[in-house]
């Protein structure tokens, strides 16, 4: 279990994340009731069933999943979880930028997987607002220090759409 950080607090994860086991396929896996985060392939294969089910819907995006393919579905999701298989795998930062800046996603954007203290600042800037910190790391220290590493930034990003040079010359 990871420690879920939201709004600089540790919060309980009220969502069930559906996982595809070795013998499961997106087409055959049973769809649980309640608030569920569905794997990308399950959502793609069974949108209508998932929608008919009731309960809130979340989506899990992994590295190779193309966010473009669910761009039209974004209004259905209350949570989108983006998986970082290793903390040095940076694809999720682009996924988040696209979700927030191009596809207008405004729900919870959750970083899951190998999430450590030193990613938090960058994750926040591209638009994540929930962080499943690995459970062997200090959540208290992450909350205290991890989000306030730098007081400003040069680039435009989700949290600051104007690059520094446009604010400097203003």
């Amino acid at each position: 279990m990871a420690q879920l950080i939201k709004d600089k607090q540790i919060v309980a994860d009220t969502w069930l994340t559906l996982e595809l086991g070795e013998n499961d396929t997106a087409e055959s896996i049973a769809l649980p009731a309640g608030d569920v985060i569905f794997p990308f392939a399950v959502w793609q294969a069974r949108k209508d069933e998932i929608l008919a089910r009731g309960g809130k819907i979340g989506l899990l995006i992994k590295g190779e999943d193309l966010v473009e393919e669910v761009a039209a579905d974004i209004a259905h999701f209350a949570v989108i979880a983006v998986n970082f298989p290793k903390f040095v795998d940076g694809r999720g930062y682009s996924t988040a930028s696209l979700l927030r800046q191009r596809y207008g996603y405004t729900g919870e954007l959750r970083a899951v997987g190998d999430i450590l203290h030193d990613q938090l600042f960058y994750l926040t800037r591209v638009g994540f607002d929930a962080y499943a910190l690995r459970d062997d790391k200090s959540a208290a220290y992450a909350i205290e220090k991890g989000f306030s590493v730098f007081s400003d930034a040069y680039q435009p990003s989700t949290t600051q759409p104007q690059p520094l040079f446009r604010r400097r010359s203003a």
Partner: peptide, 14 residues
Amino acid sequence: RQWSMFHPEFYFLP
């Protein structure tokens, strides 16, 4: 140089 420093999206490239 300024654009590339701590770029949040391109800090963990391949």
